[in-house]
């Protein structure tokens, strides 16, 4: 056996109305086989009604070293509704 069969990431939509969610990965030679394998591996207990497969190599991930500069906008509280004061008499808004 020479080459490795490529790795795919599998996303399943549990039911209509929900988003596809990452559930795991598997190996398959091409996208058709990856979809079949995803069906056989990840939907044996009625886990969903739609499958996406994506070659793992096609995923770009953010760098955890940049997590600080990327994900800490905690000071911009004016983006949240509780920042604004509305009198109770106005009712729910």
């Amino acid at each position: 056996m020479s080459a490795e069969v490529p790795l795919w990431e599998v996303f399943i939509r549990p039911r209509n109305g929900l988003a596809h969610k990452h559930v795991g990965s598997l190996h398959a030679a091409d996208e058709v086989m990856a979809l079949n394998a995803a069906r056989d591996v990840y939907t044996r207990r009625g886990e969903g009604n739609s499958i996406w497969v994506v070659p793992s190599a096609s995923i770009s991930a953010s760098d955890p070293d940049q997590a600080g500069e990327n994900f800490e906008p905690g000071d911009k509280i004016y983006r949240h509704p509780t920042f604004y004061e509305i009198p109770d008499e106005v009712g729910h808004m």
């Binding site: 069969v5 598997l26 190996h27 398959a28 086989m33 079949n36 394998a37 056989d40 591996v41 044996r44």
Partner: peptide, 11 residues
């Protein structure tokens, strides 16, 4: 022949 097929055949 591969693990994925070890799930498909029993299905």
């Amino acid at each position: 022949p591969m693990l994925e097929e070890d799930l498909a055949l029993p299905n």
